[in-house]
Design a protein around this nucleic acid. Structure first.
Lengths: 199, 199
DNA sequence: CCACGTTCTTGACGCCGTGTCAAATACTCT
DNA sequence: AGAGTATTTGACACGGCGTCAAGAACGTGG
């Protein structure tokens, strides 16, 4: 067995950085290969295809991101948790220069041609999966808050509403790039969900 | 002057249909040319580039869509208006088989690499423009509703919130494709904005 | 009514991207 | 050391974008 001349994880990180900045279709394997100091063919040998490479790189990101969200949603009052959640969300897709946007949302709209269409189906699943997991996390926080009397309402519906807003923020970020506006919308949403200006 | 052998508007409609179904990067000028019964070179002669063609096709769509929204937001109680607005929004991106999603949102996430990046800047402007106009329409409806005592609150903030939700719905549509769920979120949002279950 | 000029059309080209393949290479294990 | 195996490498086919020069079709002025 001839050993690999590159580090599997390094390539994954380099690749995801490119995908994040330029989109999946906008990133060529040549770009990644150059950046990683690897021959293009080696990437095909190691990962199979561009989409497979993206998928692996995305899963890595998704795992890390979920852990960070879990942490943000796990401490303090419900209001504090939700604030930290929105904060992390916005910070995430305002990161980089220029800001890279939300990879999940970008991926969904770029690749999610439609249910059943091309082979992007697997990618769509991965995106949808992360969204589901985040929704569950938020819902847990809300349920816990309800038990402590910090929230009265349907946790499931409220969680879904919050997730919808975060996805919308990811879109508005691309449209306007005004971070302050995004944070205002986030604060407003928290107020709305937490039964008005209650603190 | 040799006359054109194809109808400018026909091509625009055919092109936008393709862009809508397969995304901008996922649609080739060869596809459009074949569909329209036109040589690829003729498209370059008439429109200049793929992006220019998309832009023209998109502007056409945006104009029509805005008129429809204006109509939906212009009659009945505030609740009825907002319901009609969400209804049209969801129906729009659930149209087609399979559903094509929201062209504006898809375009934004696909092309909006970032402010200042490639020449997609012009496209980003077009998308952002439509979002702004829709926001203004919703805000007008809310202001009018406030004057009639159907709504108490900040019209601007509420309009922005509603727009954010619609963008989020466009994303969730891609992720899950569950139309009933989208409609639930929409209804929930209306309740939230209109100060709880008040009718 | 015919020649001219202007515009549209057509086909070939260069470049880049994806994905495949066979040959060369570098290691491991016996 | 030698055989086997996985990786690397470079060439190839294919398709997409955009450009260009040559050909074709029409209006117009003589």
């Amino acid at each position: 067995m001839r050993p690999r001349e590159f580090d599997h994880d390094d390539v994954l990180r380099i690749a995801f950085d490119q995908f994040w900045r330029k989109g999946v279709r906008g990133t060529s394997l040549s770009d990644i290969a150059r950046d990683a100091g690897v021959q293009r063919g080696s990437l095909y040998n190691a990962f199979g295809s561009k989409e497979a490479l993206f998928l692996q790189a995305y899963e890595r990101y998704a795992g890390d991101y979920l852990v960070a969200l879990q942490k943000a949603l796990g401490a303090g009052s419900l209001r504090k948790r939700l604030t930290a959640f929105f904060d992390l969300t916005i910070t995430n897709f305002r990161s980089g220069t220029p800001p890279r946007g939300c990879p999940t949302t970008r991926g969904l709209m770029e690749l999610g041609a439609a249910e059943g269409e091309g082979l992007d189906e697997e990618a769509r699943q991965a995106f949808a999966n992360l969204v589901s997991r985040i929704t569950a996390l938020v819902q847990d926080a809300l349920s816990a808050g309800a038990a402590r009397g910090e929230f009265s309402g349907n946790s499931a519906a409220a969680a879904l509403h919050i997730i919808t807003v975060t996805r919308g923020l990811a879109v508005l970020e691309r449209a306007f790039g005004d971070e302050a506006q995004l944070r205002k919308i986030a604060a407003h949403t928290i107020d709305l969900v937490l039964d008005k200006k209650g603190r």
